[in-house]
Write a protein that binds this DNA or RNA. Structure first.
Lengths: 181, 181
DNA sequence: GTCTATAGAGCGATAGAC
DNA sequence: GTCTATCGCTCTATAGAC
């Protein structure tokens, strides 16, 4: 065989994640990825039909990692929140892609759905019939916290308190408790 | 005069906002902006030394608009939140730039500081000594809500409830009240 | 202050050989 | 399945004329 396989879809995906974390979404290019894998750009099109399809695959991979992480959490919503924030902080670009990527196929979307269901179920003991609304509220709070940290809002001269993560979470949970009375 | 002024920094800024809203941050290019103003790209460099400086100016403009909007709010934190969400929804790309733009000079940063102070002061009657932590919590929730809406989380097959904005806000305020007891 | 012209670099994607 | 070669397009920024 004059041209044996030098790579695979899985290898490409792994390298893509590396490049994504290194240079953000714009830093993940077909050419750069090919260079990382010591291939010519054209070779990648045998595995992913376009850059967009590759991005979707990476996003789905991130979704799978997050789902696995959250599935391992045994405790209360606070532990779930910690795990979510941990993922977002450790893989900022992957998290960003996870949150903004459109163009997912049905199989990829299903991973997202599973994550949503998991969170809703975990909140049900606390929020009962408002479990979905509570899930969105918690999600929004956590997602916003990540965004705020990334925007550098703590770097201004106003001396904003850094240890507000648990304060806000406590506020939400206290609100839930006061509502179920 | 062979080359009379055809534009001004203010005109450029206004056109830049238009372009930004039309095509996002990546859609605001020197060339596109010049075309919009019927100028050659080079002419713009007389007014802004680089694309980055232009982006900072646009971000500061957005910050000024938001500050003015929030200043006009008379009522409770709920009204403040509504005005914030309104700005983010009506000017999505401007809001995005506002939240992510670095490289601001001292004068531009000052607008951000004023906004922060305004929110903290408005929350003091409700949150007292925890006014700053409450401000960050509220900000994170609102910012996250905007991000979630934009990510299309409501478009999945899970039938997530759309009317959670006031639910979450109520949760936070209830939490604050239960804490001040 | 605006112009023409260009340097210098990046990108996704395709055609066709092997 | 990978290669070489290339099309066609994008962009920021600068040099120097008027």
């Amino acid at each position: 065989m004059p041209y044996p396989a030098k790579t695979s879809a899985g290898q490409i995906l792994a390298a893509a994640v590396t490049l994504l974390e290194r240079g953000g979404q714009a830093g993940l290019t077909i050419r750069g990825l090919a260079a990382e894998l010591q291939l010519t750009p054209n070779a990648l099109y045998r595995y992913y039909p376009s850059r967009e399809a590759l991005l979707s695959a990476v996003a789905a991979h991130g979704a799978g990692v997050l789902l696995a992480n959250l599935s391992r959490v045994a405790g209360d919503p606070g532990a779930l929140a910690d795990q979510y924030l941990r993922f977002a902080r450790e893989h900022p670009a992957l998290y960003d892609l996870y949150m903004t990527c459109g163009n997912l196929n049905a199989e990829q979307q299903h991973i997202y759905s599973q994550t949503w269901s998991l969170v809703v179920e975990r909140l049900r003991p606390l929020a009962g019939p408002h479990s979905q609304a509570a899930a969105i509220t918690l999600w929004a709070y956590l997602h916003g916290l990540v965004g705020l940290e990334r925007s550098g809002v703590y770097e201004g001269p106003e001396n904003k308190p850094r240890d507000t993560q648990s304060f806000g979470l406590g506020l939400l949970l206290a609100g839930l408790r006061s509502q179920s009375e």
